[in-house]
Design a protein around this nucleic acid. Structure first.
Length: 522
DNA sequence: TTCATGGTTGTTGGC
DNA sequence: CGCCAACAACCATGA
C-alpha cells in the first residue's frame, strides 16, 4: 500500500540534505509538504520585521524549489496539535515526517504531535539533520552529560567518528509515482503569508542584505567556498568585528533556518581542506560548525538552559535590574560609540560579527552595566536574523562568564577593542553618522574632545550624542570584584576577604591558592 | 584526592 | 608592529 505523507518543515527549510523529506517521498502516492505558522512563536518571543522577511523569503524559495519537482508548500495557520487531526483526516494521511529539533518547546510539541499521529494511525519518521551529530548520542557517549568544554566535545566526537554525509536533494524522479494535489483555493488557504498578515510594518524593514532561502544559502556558500586560500587560512579570532562589509561568511542565518545544511557545509569544507594546509578547530570554519554543535548539545542536555535559575551550569549572579541602562544599551544610547554602532547595526541589519557580539554582551553584563544576560538574550533573540535558541543562550552565558568561560577578569574595553581593527572609526561613522566629523583621536571617546572640536563636528556631547552612561574604568574594576564574590558564593565561601595573590615572577607559573580554593567543600 | 594544565577571540605598558 | 609580562585569578578535565 503506497503512503500518503506529510513532510513538516520547521527548521530545515531546504530540499538538499533533507532525509526526512526523502523518507516522506518513499513509496508515496500523495505528498503534502507543509509549514505551520504556529502562534506559539510570536506569543513567546519578539521577532524583528527583518527576521519575518527572512522567513517569508525562505518559504517562498522552498515553494519554488518544490514546484520544480512537481510539488508545493502548504503554509498552514494554527496550533500544531489542533491542525494535525484535521489534516490527517482531510488528506487521509498515513505517514508524517520531520527533522529532529532538540529545543525544549519543539521537543514538547513534537511529542504531543507524535501522540496525536499515533491515535490517527499515522506513522511518524524523524531524522537528524539539523546538527552534525545526534546530540542525544553525544550526551550518551559522555556519560549522560553534555561536554562543558570544547576539547571534551572534540574527544567525544573523535570516538564517534566523522559526521554523516549529506543526502542529495529530491528530484522529479523521486516524485515519479507521487503527486501533490492543490486546487484553486490553495493561495487563500495555504499561501505564503505577507508581512501585513503577520502584523508587521514593512516600513520598519532594514536594508535587504541577506535575502532568505535555500537558493541564496547555496549561492552564498559557493561564493565563499571559491576563496579556497581564505577558507584554508580562516581563523575566527583574527577576523574583524567592525569591517564595513562582513569579514565572515554570514551563513549563520541560513543555518538557523536550515536553508543550509550544516553537514553540507562541513563536507564542502572537508573537500577544500583535503591535501592542503589548513587551520583547525576551534578557530577554523570546521571549528565554527563544532561550536554550533557544542551549544546545541548543551542546550539539549541542560535543563533551563536559557535561564540562570535552575540552570546547573550557570553561576548565580546578583545582576542589577536597571531599566534605564538596559534601554540605553538596546537603543544604542550608551555614549560609547563602538557599543552604540554595533547595536545600531544589529537593529537595522540583523547581523553583527561574533566579536561585536562579545563586546556588547560583555558591556551589558559583567563588564559595565551589570544587567542579567537573560535580558541581552531577549534582545538578540528579537533582532538577530540568526537567533538560534541554544547558541544564543550558550553564548550569553559564555560572555557573561556564567558558564563555559570563567576568566571574568578578562574584560573587553568599549574603547580599546574596536580600535585594534578600525583606528579611524569608519565603522562608527557608518552606523552613527552624527559622529562622522569627529577626528580619529576622539571618535571612540568623543566626550574627551574639547568643546571646539565638538562644535566643529556639529555634535555636542550630552546634547546631540549622549555622554557615557558609566565610567568603564571604574565600573569594570568593581564588577570584577562582584563576579569574584558570585563565584566564591558558588563554592561555598565568602569572596570578601580574598587575599591579594602574589605577583608572578618569571618562571613561577602557579599562584598561591585563594581562600575559595582553601575552603572548598570536601 | 590532589594538582597541573589549558582554556577560540582582554588590556595596558614596556621593549 | 610584534612580543611579552603583569594585572588578578576563574573552571573542567584528566593524570
Amino acid at each position: 500500500m503506497p503512503h500518503r505523507s506529510i513532510h513538516w518543515f520547521r527548521k530545515g527549510l531546504r530540499l538538499h540534505d533533507n532525509p526526512a523529506l526523502l523518507a516522506a517521498m518513499k513509496d508515496c502516492e500523495e505528498l503534502h509538504p507543509i509549514f505551520i505558522l504556529d502562534p506559539w512563536f510570536p506569543r513567546n518571543m519578539k521577532v524583528s520585521v527583518n527576521r519575518w522577511r527572512f522567513l517569508i523569503e525562505a518559504l517562498k524559495d522552498l515553494d519554488e524549489n518544490l514546484k520544480m519537482i512537481n510539488s508545493r508548500l502548504f503554509v498552514v495557520r494554527g496550533k500544531p496539535a489542533e491542525v494535525f487531526p484535521q489534516l490527517f483526516k482531510k488528506w487521509k494521511v498515513t505517514r508524517l515526517t520531520f527533522e529532529v529539533d532538540t529545543e525544549p518547546y519543539s521537543r514538547q510539541r513534537d511529542a504531543e504531535v507524535g501522540r496525536i499521529a499515533t491515535e490517527h494511525n499515522v506513522e511518524v519518521i524523524q531524522k537528524v539533520s539539523n546538527t552534525l551529530y545526534d546530540v542525544d548520542r553525544v550526551i550518551a557517549e559522555n556519560n549522560g552529560k553534555p561536554p562543558l568544554t570544547y576539547v571534551r566535545l572534540q574527544t567525544v566526537l573523535a570516538s564517534i567518528g566523522p559526521p554523516k554525509r549529506p543526502c542529495s536533494a529530491p528530484t522529479k524522479e523521486n516524485m515519479k509515482d507521487c503527486r501533490t494535489p492543490w486546487k484553486g483555493s490553495y493561495e487563500e488557504i495555504y499561501g505564503i503569508p505577507t508581512l501585513e498578515e503577520l502584523g508587521q510594518d514593512p516600513t520598519k524593514l532594514g536594508p535587504h542584505l541577506y535575502p532568505g532561502g535555500e537558493s541564496e544559502a547555496l549561492r552564498r556558500l559557493d561564493l565563499n567556498m571559491k576563496r579556497t586560500a581564505w577558507v584554508c587560512n580562516f581563523k575566527k579570532p583574527e577576523t574583524e568585528p567592525n569591517s564595513l562589509t562582513p569579514s565572515t561568511t554570514v551563513l549563520s542565518p541560513y543555518m538557523k533556518f536550515g536553508c543550509l545544511s550544516t553537514r553540507t557545509f562541513y563536507w564542502r569544507l572537508a573537500e577544500i581542506y583535503h591535501g592542503k594546509k589548513h587551520s583547525s578547530p576551534p578557530v577554523s570554519l570546521h571549528g565554527q560548525l563544532l561550536w554550533r554543535e557544542f551549544f546545541y548539545t548543551a542546550g539539549a542536555g541542560i535543563p533551563n538552559f536559557n535561564k540562570m535559575e535552575g540552570n546547573s551550569v550557570c553561576v548565580q549572579v546578583d545582576w542589577d535590574e536597571n531599566k534605564d541602562y538596559l534601554e540605553a544599551w538596546r537603543e544604542a544610547r550608551t555614549g560609547y560609540p563602538f557599543i552604540d554602532a554595533i547595536m545600531t547595526q544589529l537593529r537595522t541589519e540583523g547581523w553583527i560579527h561574533h566579536l561585536a557580539r562579545h563586546a556588547v554582551a560583555c558591556f551589558l553584563t559583567r563588564g559595565d552595566l551589570w544587567i542579567s544576560w537573560e535580558e541581552g538574550q531577549k534582545v538578540f533573540e528579537e533582532l538577530l536574523l540568526d537567533a538560534d535558541w541554544s547558541l544564543n543562550a550558550g553564548n550569553w552565558q559564555w560572555l557573561s562568564a556564567s558558564a563555559f568561560f570563567h576568566q571574568f577578569f578578562r574584560v573587553y574595553s568599549p574603547v580599546a577593542f574596536g580600535k585594534k581593527t578600525d583606528k579611524n572609526g569608519d565603522y562608527i561613522k557608518k552606523y552613527l553618522p552624527i559622529l562622522k566629523k569627529f577626528p580619529p583621536e576622539y571618535i571612540y571617546e568623543p566626550w574627551k574632545s574639547p568643546r571646539s572640536v565638538q562644535e566643529r563636528a556639529g555634535c555636542i556631547i550630552g546634547k546631540d550624542y549622549p555622554k557615557p552612561i558609566v565610567e568603564h574604568e571604574t565600573v569594570s574594576k568593581h564588577n570584577i570584584q562582584r563576579m569574584k564574590a558570585a563565584y566564591a558564593r558558588r563554592s561555598g565561601t565568602s569572596g570578601e576577604q580574598a587575599p591579594k595573590s602574589p605577583s608572578n615572577k618569571k618562571g613561577v607559573k602557579r599562584k598561591a591558592p585563594s581562600v575559595a580554593d582553601l575552603f572548598k567543600k570536601k
